[in-house]
Design a binder for these strands. Structure first.
Lengths: 223, 223
DNA sequence: GCCTCTATCCCCCAAACACGGGATGCTCCG
DNA sequence: CGGAGCATCCCGTGTTTGGGGGATAGAGGC
């Protein structure tokens, strides 16, 4: 992920105020040290739990929150979602050792602004924090690729359609409006049995067993 | 019309073979020069149109394609989609002056692997090409952010307009997967009658008369 | 304590549906 | 011409559903 403009943190301007959320004491301490060692950055607080974070972060209103995912009781994802509710403009970077697609997506959905791996090098962490402050969405190349692919998948299923005849498609459209067979029959001026027949074929082609499933499929495959 | 360029005399490993697709001669020439000036990269061909690209790129099978979006007749997006059909593994970077959300998304859906702005600095272009070859999805910070936001928008919005209880929503979700009452009952470990009961309430709240209609409503209300 | 909301379970019955068989035309294509 | 594909109709059987009518029990607000 590239970053563009990045105002150099000079001694003149106040440091970027960072809060860390991480439950393991050892890890927390070393991250605090690392952050404070970055010129222009100051770790003004560290939280040991999601509850703690929700309590102390809003009044502090820091520039960036570095959030671990695995926290006791409330996950970092949950915590992210809640923080974003209160402070929509706060920048939250997920910082975790685990690179799991589901977690990444859940975190992004929850409102995380970036997703970094803990093995990220100090200079990359710094770059990522500047990036996120500049409106970027920093993440590793692999994660970016997966997000894009997921994005693509979501968009593509949109088009994957089985070949239905025009009549079948008409029936399916009316089906998806919630009409009963008889109503569909009336609207198409055919008999209810014929509608049933078309339905049978539609079910076969779409590999579904009920009108509800057919509707669901039809709707997602063209959202 | 196209122009062939001699590959750079390389060091140990062969240079990255790049093909440029760009219709404007002036822009094209300067990009060719730029690419060839990057150590380890060679612009082995440049195409002036999508049709041209579809003809010459498959046999060449380059490492990276740099694609302009605005091409006469066939857009760079269309061209990207077709190239990806033939050469799924080819890496295509969209390189354009215009930073339009719709275009970005269309390009990514079409299979583009990255999206760069023309004002990208030479070293960033180089980094992006290496990134994409390494499995990344290079794009500018702002674009990454928008992709993530779009991703978020698409994924979120599980909330419906009507207030359903959590149980009701669970039932509705399973309903929209096409399950029968009994199956839903099994999955929720409740009785089929209870499912029917929830369904009745859902129908009342959503003002529908059938599961198909409920599913249709549910799906559209979160598109 | 009372009341509302929620979730759970139950009964009944007419109507709708799923799904297995067909059958008849009609058109298009090789 | 023969066949494939489509749309239309029919029948029969067993299952599912929608829409009535309740009842009970817990949680939470007032």
């Amino acid at each position: 992920m590239k970053q563009s403009l990045t105002p150099l943190p000079s001694a003149a301007r106040p440091p970027v105020r960072v809060v860390l959320v991480e439950d393991k004491p050892g890890v927390r301490d070393s991250w605090v040290k690392l952050i404070n060692s970055l010129p222009g950055f100051s770790c003004i607080q560290s939280c040991t739990s999601g509850e703690d974070a929700l309590r102390v972060i809003p009044p502090l209103n820091p520039d960036v929150v570095l959030m671990d995912i695995f926290l006791p009781r409330m996950s970092g994802i949950e915590c992210t979602a809640r923080l974003k509710l209160q402070l929509p403009k706060i920048q939250i970077l997920i910082l975790t050792a685990v690179e799991d697609d589901e977690l990444v997506f859940m975190a992004l959905e929850a409102g995380a602004d970036g997703y970094l791996l803990k093995r990220t090098k100090p200079e990359d962490l710094k770059a990522a924090m500047l990036d996120v402050l500049g409106g970027g969405a920093p993440m590793t190349s692999e994660i970016a690729r997966r997000v894009v692919e997921s994005f693509r998948r979501a968009a593509r299923q949109t088009k994957s359609t089985v070949h239905l005849t025009t009549r079948e498609e008409e029936v399916l459209i009316l089906l998806s409006k919630g009409y009963a067979n008889k109503e569909i029959a009336d609207q198409l001026s055919i008999s209810a049995e014929t509608v049933g027949s078309h339905l049978k074929h539609i079910y076969e082609k779409m590999h579904v067993r009920s009108r509800a499933e057919a509707v669901a499929r039809y709707m997602t495959s063209r959202a």
